[in-house]
Amino acid sequence: MSVWARIAGWAALIFGLLYFFVPLGGLFEFSLRARRGVYSFDAYARVLADPQFQATFTYSVVMALVTIAIGILIVVPTAFWVRLKMPWARPYVEFLTLLPLVIPAIVIVFGYIRLYNTSSWLPLTGSTLGTNILLAFGYTILALPYMYRAVDTGLRTIDVATLTEAAQSLGAGWATILGRIILPNVIAAVLSGAFLTFAIVIGEFTLAALLDRPAFGPYLQRIGANKAYEPFALSVIAFAITWGCLALIQLVSRFQKTAPAKA
């Protein structure tokens, strides 16, 4: 390889790395500027003491956990069933799971607001509980592409048909097969889908804002318009959580057995 190619390669790489890390550094530096003249964690202290932060953050964490639960309940049995009984349906199911990448979230939530408003056949937005449920379902849809792909990849590494037949021959029912055979075998895949879901939900803005729920994303945007340093401290926290989740995915996928793929 020529010297010029090497120089160009290094230049591209260094430029890209600066592009990734300078904004993160800038964010962190800014978040420490709350006290004039010296770096301090004042902004963090104020943010963490803010009851609104605690409330919205808790809300988002709970929403994330609920979303993960719904996602697992819907995705794992479906992916399992498709692999076991309806392999011909796989492209169609996959297509459906990829739709949320095509349809912008803002359009989906727009549809919710119109379809499930107080005067509709299913007035979900009419009550707080209903809206919360709708938001969790919406998050499940947003996370569907990632969750489905993770689980489906996990299922590919185990021999679903043989495991199922073995369990059936020992007298297991469907619930037992799913809960005690399939799930434990794809737990690493499910976990990485779950962490990604968590990362998406924690900072999500559009759905929560338009459904008017007190989540972390809208809170962050709101105080961004009113406070000087706090939003930056909050962003650092949000980044740290996202990074933490994605680091966990890496960790989990390392534990995943790399069995030969079976179609």
Binding site: P23, G26, L27, F205, G217, L220, F232, S235, F239, T242
Partner: peptide, 8 residues
Amino acid sequence: GVPLAFAF
């Protein structure tokens, strides 16, 4: 997302 906006 929102945090990215603040980073920039």
